[in-house]
Amino acid sequence: MSNARIALARLKASGLRLTKQRRDLIGYLSTHEDSYVPVTAVDAYLRGVHPGLSHDTIYRNVKAFESLGILEEATQGEQATVKLQCDFQHPHHHHFICTQCHRVQELKMCPLGYFEQQVPGAQIASHNFELYGLCAACARAK
């Protein structure tokens, strides 16, 4: 089953209405599955397709989708970015992000255990771990 179909099924199961705008949000992100998309680009796309749609509605849907595990959010520089969840079976995962082509690769290991050892007795509430650099293809082309 494709990630877009899983996302639509999760949206239906959540009790939120499956509106055309929400379908279009999932559809747009499914065409960019390998990379994060600036939230401003998502906003521009959806407002182009649905001219009456407000910025607030778009951002509320992005936040709701993130809390449902449909979207992953990251900050790149000063910019908020999102992508469709790349692994619905293992929602807790980390990424390598190419700084040139913006492709995203899922990392199969979480380094939290290593860092927990460095702060004994601490109660870690959350964490985020991303690697940035050139992917193999971009490094070869350089």
Rank of each mutant, 00 (worst) to 15 (best):
L46S: 00
Y132S: 05
R17Q: 13
E78C: 01
L25S: 02
E106K: 15
V119E: 10
V104H: 09
T81A: 05
C98G: 06
G15F: 01
A7K: 05
P111H: 12
Q21D: 03
K142S: 07
C110G: 03
H127C: 13
L8H: 06
D87T: 09
L71I: 07
H92I: 06
R5S: 06
Y45H: 11
R5K: 09
K108Y: 13
E130T: 13
R47I: 00
A80Y: 10
F129V: 10
K12T: 12
G48T: 04
R47V: 00
H92D: 03
H32E: 02
H127A: 13
P51F: 07
K12H: 12
Q76T: 04
I26F: 08
A4I: 15
D34I: 12
N128T: 14
K63C: 10
P120W: 14
L53H: 05
R60G: 00
M109Y: 11
A9K: 15
Y45W: 09
E106W: 03
A9S: 15
T57Q: 08
S30M: 08
E130V: 13
R140V: 02
E78V: 03
G15S: 02
R5N: 08
Q79T: 11
Q21C: 04
E78F: 04
M1C: 04
Y36S: 05
A9Y: 08
T57H: 03
H55C: 00
Q76A: 04
Y132M: 10
V82H: 02
A74L: 11
C110Q: 05
Q117K: 14
T57P: 02
A74M: 08
G52T: 15
K142I: 04
L131C: 15
F115S: 07
E78L: 06
N128C: 15
G27V: 10
L71C: 06
L131E: 15
L131W: 09
R47E: 00
H94V: 07
R17Y: 09
A122F: 09
R23Y: 09
Y114K: 11
V42S: 02
S14F: 07
V37R: 01
N128S: 15
Y132V: 04
A141E: 14
C138F: 11
K12S: 12
C135F: 13
S30F: 11
K108S: 14
L18N: 02
D87R: 12
C135D: 10
F129T: 07
A141T: 13
E73F: 09
E66K: 12
E78R: 08
R22F: 01
R5C: 02
S2L: 14
G121W: 07
A136L: 10
F115I: 09
D87C: 15
G27S: 12
K142P: 01
A41Q: 05
L71F: 10
C101R: 07
H94S: 12
E116G: 05
H94G: 06
S67N: 06
G27I: 09
T99N: 13
C86H: 07
M1K: 04
Q76I: 12
L29P: 01
V39N: 00
Y59P: 00
E33A: 06
G52A: 14
L107W: 01
A125M: 09
R5A: 06
G113D: 03
